[in-house]
Simulated assay, not measured.
Amino acid sequence: MNNFLGRVVSGKVTDENDKNYFVQIEGTTFLLDKDEILKPLKIGCNFKGFAYENENHKMQITRNIPDVQVDHYAFGTVVQSKYGLGIFVDIGLPNKDIAVSIDDLPELTKLWPQHGDKVMIALKIDKKDRIWGELADEEIFKSISIPANPKLKNRNMKATTYRLKLAGTRVITDDYRLGFIHPSEREMEPRLGQQVDVRVIGILRDGTLNLSMKPRAYEAISDDSKMIFAVLKRSEDGKISYTDKSTPEDIKAFFGISKGQFKRAVGNLLKNRLIEQKDGEMLLTEKGKETDIE
């Protein structure tokens, strides 16, 4: 097995042509693209760079060293997927994308990373000197994460999914905090490597952020609901003499909407426990009094 691939190594410049220098490392010759070099190299000098096999199956060395290496984990961007093989990840090499095997991906292809998603990988070299991407495991993410902060409660954040399980989705936020999304806190399961918008709803015992992909109650209600809620908030005592039992004519005259629209809007507010109806009146609940809707 080639011990140079996927690592930063040093070699000696032994020759050149119009396009490349040739760098030799213990009997193996690597191409070095001259477009990378600002000042001409002398034959016999040493050169240090990242060694890999390019897409044409030729050994190459580059001064543009990627963050992803053997035993070095970092995020790369998914550029394509191939059914029956896996996904390909751009780690910054000019002519090589790194394959992640189907064996390391979710069983359901709909949960595979798509173009533009990000996965954290390191490189591994198989017995045939092929370079593969190896997904970071839970311990790697724990080692790079920072502790959860109780002050983050109710904060909106962006996060990238890195582990999909029946119990829920594991993510890491853009500021490197670990998070968990229970299935009840999402409308659908996100893909591996997908960036998602989340909201902090608590802190778990292990210090992980408890997250939700669902909108806040007031973000989920309709425009008609917001209008009715605003009328209630502006009333002197937090109640109005209109309910879903009011006549269509009275509702149209006061709110400017049909009774069907009104009932749907009121139902939305009731579902979110922002209002209640009692004795022919609609009034704010304690939660409604504490909630502001823009």
Rank of each mutant, 00 (worst) to 15 (best):
D250P: 01
D175I: 12
L135Q: 09
T62E: 04
N3D: 03
E107V: 14
R7E: 04
D97F: 11
D197H: 10
I65M: 15
D117H: 14
R191C: 10
G179P: 00
F75S: 11
D250S: 13
D117A: 14
V100L: 12
I181W: 00
E55A: 13
E189I: 07
D197L: 15
I65E: 10
R264P: 00
P40S: 02
S101T: 10
P147I: 11
Q261A: 07
I87A: 14
S258N: 07
Q277M: 14
E294M: 13
N20V: 07
L123V: 06
L166E: 15
L269D: 00
Q261E: 06
T169R: 09
I61C: 04
T28Q: 03
E294K: 15
L135E: 11
N149C: 10
A167M: 13
L31F: 05
V68S: 06
D223W: 03
K96A: 15
I140Q: 13
P215G: 09
S241Y: 12
E276Q: 05
P248C: 07
A265K: 03
S212A: 13
T243P: 03
N2H: 05
S222L: 11
H182D: 01
D104M: 09
N17I: 00
M1C: 04
D137S: 05
T160P: 00
I275E: 02
P106S: 15
E236Q: 14
K263T: 04
N154M: 14
F262H: 04
N56C: 10
F47I: 09
K158H: 15
R155Q: 14
V231L: 09
M1P: 02
D250C: 04
D35H: 07
P66S: 10
L135F: 10
R216S: 14
G256C: 09
S212I: 09
D33K: 04
F255H: 01
I257K: 03
K245M: 12
Q277K: 08
L111V: 14
W132G: 08
S241T: 11
F22V: 01
T247F: 02
Q195A: 13
A51P: 01
N95I: 10
K259M: 07
